[in-house]
C-alpha cells in the first residue's frame, strides 16, 4: 500500500451550507459543516435529531446539493463528479431500502447487477455476503417476512455489494431492539477491519458513537461543535465526576463546602440530593472526599466515581443536555 493513498482522506467536507425552503419558512439545516475523515476505520457523525447529520450525508452521497461549500469523497468532488462518486460509495439509508417482495438473494443480485457485476459475479458476491452476515438460511425467503435485525443486515450487505471504498451508514440501529442492535454493532465493528473500507456512521446514540467510532465529530444545530476520538473528547473535559448521594437530614451546604475544600476538586453542583464534583482524577481524590465528609459529620447514602461520557462532552460543547436537544429538535426535520 502506498503511503500517499493511505494518508489521503476518504472524505473531506468544508463549509457545507444548506437551507431548506425560502423566505420566512427557510430552515438552515447546515451552517458551515466541515470535517476530514481519514481512510480506514469508522468515523462517527454524532448529534441530536435535526442537527444536520442526514443533510450532510445526503450531500456526500450526491442525493442533495449544498448551497455552498465543497466536499470530496474518495478523492472525487461530489458536485462535479457525482457519477464517479456513486461507484465509489455504498449508502445505507435510515429507512429500509430492500424490496420486501423479493428474497434476500434476489435483492443482493439485483443490486450487484446495478453496479455492473455479471450475473455470475453478482450471484457469487451475494452468496458471500449472505454467509458473512449470517443470512444464509433465510436467503431464499421473501425479505418482508424477516426480522428487523436481519432486514437491517441485508441493507448493509446491499451497500457493500460492489466493494465500495466508503460506506455511509445513516442511523443504522434506529428502531432495532437491544439484541438486534448489539448484533449490528458487532457487524459494524467487523467492517472496520475490512481492507481499505472507510465507514461514516451517523447516530444520535451516544453509546453507539462511543463504541464504534475511532474518530467522531459532534454536530449541533448545523455546525460541528467538537471533533476527536471519543477518548480525546472525554479527557479534554479534564477529569471525572464524583457523585455524592446525601442521606436524609444531611446538611447540604455543609457537605458542599466540605467537598469543595478537598484538594483536586473543581466545581461542585447540586442535582436534587446528589452533589456532583468535577475532579481531576476520581480514584486519587475519593479518599480525601470521604475523609472530609466524615470530618463534617456527614454519612452519605452512596458515593460513586464516573468517567466522563460523551453526554458530558455534548453538554460542554453544545451548552445543553443531549437528551433534551434530541427531543426538542426531533420535529424540525
Amino acid at each position: 500500500m502506498s503511503t500517499t493513498a493511505a494518508r489521503r482522506a476518504a472524505i473531506e467536507a468544508a463549509d457545507l451550507v444548506r437551507t431548506y425552503g425560502k423566505g420566512d419558512k427557510a430552515v438552515r439545516a447546515l451552517s458551515g459543516v466541515g470535517f476530514t475523515v481519514p481512510s480506514g476505520a469508522v468515523f462517527g457523525l454524532l448529534g441530536p435529531n435535526g442537527a444536520g447529520k442526514s443533510t450532510t450525508v445526503k450531500i456526500l452521497t450526491t442525493l442533495a446539493e449544498p448551497d455552498s461549500g465543497h466536499a470530496t469523497v474518495a478523492g472525487l468532488d461530489v458536485r462535479r463528479e457525482p457519477r464517479r462518486v456513486r461507484h465509489a460509495i455504498g449508502y445505507v439509508s435510515q429507512k429500509p431500502s430492500f424490496d420486501p417482495v423479493a428474497t434476500g438473494r434476489e435483492n443482493l443480485v439485483l443490486q450487484g447487477r446495478v453496479y455492473g457485476l455479471s450475473r455470475l459475479d453478482a450471484r457469487a458476491r451475494a452468496a458471500e455476503l449472505l454467509t458473512r452476515f449470517g443470512l444464509g438460511d433465510a436467503a431464499d425467503r421473501l425479505t418482508g417476512t424477516w426480522s428487523g435485525g436481519m432486514q437491517r443486515k441485508l441493507d448493509v450487505a446491499m451497500g457493500l455489494i460492489h466493494r465500495p471504498s466508503v460506506l455511509f451508514l445513516d442511523e443504522p440501529t434506529t428502531g432495532l431492539d437491544p439484541e438486534a442492535r448489539a448484533g449490528m454493532w458487532a457487524e459494524i465493528a467487523r467492517l472496520a477491519g475490512d481492507d481499505g473500507l472507510t465507514v461514516l456512521l451517523t447516530t444520535h446514540y451516544l453509546e453507539e458513537a462511543d463504541q464504534l467510532a475511532s474518530r467522531l465529530v459532534i454536530v449541533d444545530a448545523g455546525r460541528v461543535v467538537a471533533e476527536g476520538s471519543p477518548g480525546e473528547l472525554k479527557s479534554a473535559l479534564q477529569g471525572d465526576s464524583v457523585a455524592v448521594e446525601l442521606g436524609a437530614g444531611d446538611l447540604v451546604d455543609r457537605a458542599r463546602q466540605a467537598v469543595r475544600a478537598v484538594p483536586g476538586v473543581g466545581d461542585v453542583d447540586l442535582d436534587g440530593t446528589t452533589l456532583r464534583a468535577r475532579v481531576r482524577d476520581g480514584a486519587a481524590v475519593l479518599p480525601g472526599v470521604l475523609a472530609a465528609l466524615d470530618a463534617a459529620g456527614i454519612r452519605p447514602a452512596a458515593v460513586s466515581v464516573a468517567r466522563p461520557s460523551l453526554d458530558d462532552v455534548y453538554l460542554r460543547h453544545a451548552g445543553r443536555a443531549f437528551r433534551e436537544a434530541d427531543q426538542a429538535e426531533g420535529v424540525l426535520v
Partner: peptide, 8 residues
C-alpha cells in the same frame, strides 16, 4: 435514495 446514490 439507494437507487439515486447508485450508478442507475
Amino acid at each position: 435514495d439507494r437507487n439515486l446514490t447508485s450508478p442507475v
